[in-house]
């Protein structure tokens, strides 16, 4: 059966680029990488929010991470705690012999200290011909009302991604030249992808009533 399976089926990130993280710490000081998380071969670096542009500029200029793949906001509100059980729900894996009806399922601790995470996915592209394509994720944590310094000065393509994170999650990007709604109408209230945004029951748009 083993030869019926491919060795790698999912897109490869290459080896986790720990060397880049080491050199980043050497160049910008030991506190710049707060935490390294490796999950499924993907390396995530948690960095202090105010150092984000410096970190990205270093990775771009010294390590060759020339493509900003995406900027993703994630709302971790309500992530830790207990929710209704499901079949097999082990927090850290697939303990699939446990029945769901047993009751509550413990959700793992939130992976970071604050409500919102902003994940910046970077990739090395110009080295692709030498087999040097690598990916790296840089992540910062912010609470409601805290701003993330914009990356548009380092990677201009962060523009639409940051506008989307603002529109959908209400994460503010300080210094962004054009931070306004991108997908929702300009006069929309609230940020729809927040976990506390109501599902259903929102006011009817474009009705005749004034």
């Amino acid at each position: 059966m083993t030869d019926a399976i491919l060795a790698v089926n999912s897109p490869t990130w290459g080896e986790p680029d720990q060397g880049a993280a080491d050199r980043l710490e050497a160049a910008l000081g030991a506190g710049v990488v707060e935490r390294r998380v490796e999950h499924r071969g993907e390396l995530t670096l948690d960095v202090p929010v105010e150092r984000l542009p410096d970190v990205c500029r270093h990775l771009r200029d010294e390590e060759g991470y020339d493509l900003l793949s995406s900027v993703t906001g994630i709302d971790y509100l309500g992530y830790a705690g207990e929710v209704a059980g499901y079949w097999g729900g082990g927090a850290d894996g697939r303990d699939l012999n446990r029945s769901a009806s047993a009751g509550k399922r413990a959700v793992p601790e939130a992976p970071g200290p604050k409500r919102f995470a902003v994940s910046v996915a970077l990739a090395k592209v110009l080295t692709v011909t030498d087999g040097g394509h690598r990916r790296l994720r840089v992540r910062v944590w912010v609470d409601e009302g805290e701003a993330v310094p914009t990356l548009t000065g380092v990677y201009p393509s962060a523009d639409f991604h940051e506008r989307e994170a603002w529109d959908m999650l209400g994460i503010e990007f300080a210094g962004h030249p054009n931070l306004r709604r991108i997908l929702m109408p300009e006069d929309w209230g609230g940020h729809p992808q927040r976990k506390d945004y109501p599902l259903g029951g929102e006011p009817v748009q474009f009705s005749d009533e004034v």
């Binding site: 897109p11 079949w87 729900g89 994940s119």
Partner: peptide, 22 residues
Amino acid sequence: EGFTVPAGEVYAPIESARGEFG
């Protein structure tokens, strides 16, 4: 009920007709 997926972040890009689609 569906199946459960271990906690964590993953990003899997593929090459669609317009580029990196992940």
